[in-house]
Design a binder for these strands. Structure first.
Length: 274
DNA sequence: GAGGGCGTAAACATAC
DNA sequence: TGTATGTTTACGCCCT
């Protein structure tokens, strides 16, 4: 449901370009998509600055989903998105912290970021939270900062990334990305089209013969092959289509979950592209 | 086979 | 007092 969309999605939806510009705008030239009030990323030499996560509204697929009406409750059915993300907890924590405006987060917000961006952890048992805390404490990559008690409430400390360990974290992220990019077995599989109807209440499987490759954005999501279903988008005058592998049987809720996965994977992939 | 990285579980202490 | 947070230890798995 829209409420489950990540904050990055919500922000991107607010700043998204018109749908007619959707396909053309789906690129990684962040500066070209900035609004006047946004920080120019060229001023930020730090490769690990992830402010692009909040500036990539035009990069996000399926922004229109953020405007969807609430979906009816469905039984959990996440065939593809429920697979475990390939990233280590160190990488997940790293991305979560770097995605925060202040580059520091309490444990609770790290949990929320992971859950928002990796649906697997929505239904995973609570042990992964223990692992997050374990990694925060054990890893030299992260540093604990005392909260400013005059300005904040809540338990615990804030956690940030130690600058000297950022290259190592980036390298770990790069290796993960590279490994899974080289092991994709989902590319070039037959596809089907699922039009997102104006009401967005259902997905309709179309005959694959209606598939028109020349109208599909050929740009591949940077991490969409990390063992996940590969997504492409096709847009006509009235509808936006999600192109899925032929064997996919997804409801719209699952598509939303997949979208979150793609966003998270794009986050990691874009980081490596910077 | 050894060592390191990682994930997971658990026990315990501390803070709110 | 219960819960969240933080630390530490232990163990198993996988990869190099």
């Amino acid at each position: 449901s829209p409420a489950s969309l990540s904050s990055a999605t919500a922000e991107s939806a607010q700043s998204s370009s018109p749908a007619s510009d959707f396909a053309a705008s789906r690129c990684f030239e962040i500066q070209s998509t900035q609004s006047p009030g946004q920080v120019n990323t060229s001023d930020q030499d730090d490769l690990t600055c992830l402010s692009w996560l909040h500036q990539r509204g035009d990069l996000l697929p399926l922004q229109l989903l953020a405007k969807m009406t609430p979906l009816p409750k469905q039984q959990p059915c996440m065939p593809a998105a429920s697979s475990k993300p390939p990233y280590s907890f160190n990488s997940l924590i790293f991305m979560a912290i770097e995605d925060s405006p202040q580059k520091r987060l309490p444990v609770k917000d790290i949990y929320e970021w992971i859950v928002s961006n990796f649906p697997y952890y929505r239904t995973a048992t609570g042990g992964w939270r223990n692992s997050v805390r374990h990694n925060l404490s054990l890893s030299k990559s992260f540093r604990r900062i005392q909260r400013d008690k005059s300005q904040s409430t809540g338990k615990g400390s804030l956690w940030c990334v130690c600058p000297q360990y950022r290259p190592a974290l980036l390298e770990a992220l790069r290796k993960t990305h590279s490994y899974h990019s080289n092991n994709s077995n989902l590319i070039n599989k037959p596809t089907m089209l699922c039009p997102l109807t104006p009401d967005h209440e259902e997905l309709v499987t179309m005959d694959s013969t209606e598939y028109q490759p020349n109208e599909v954005s050929e740009e591949k999501d940077p991490l969409s092959d990390s063992g996940y279903i590969e997504l492409h988008y096709y847009e006509s005058d009235q509808c936006q289509y999600l192109v899925l592998p032929e064997e996919s049987e997804l409801d719209l809720e699952t598509v939303e979950i997949l979208q979150l996965d793609v966003e998270a994977q794009e986050a990691a992939g874009s980081l490596l592209d910077l």
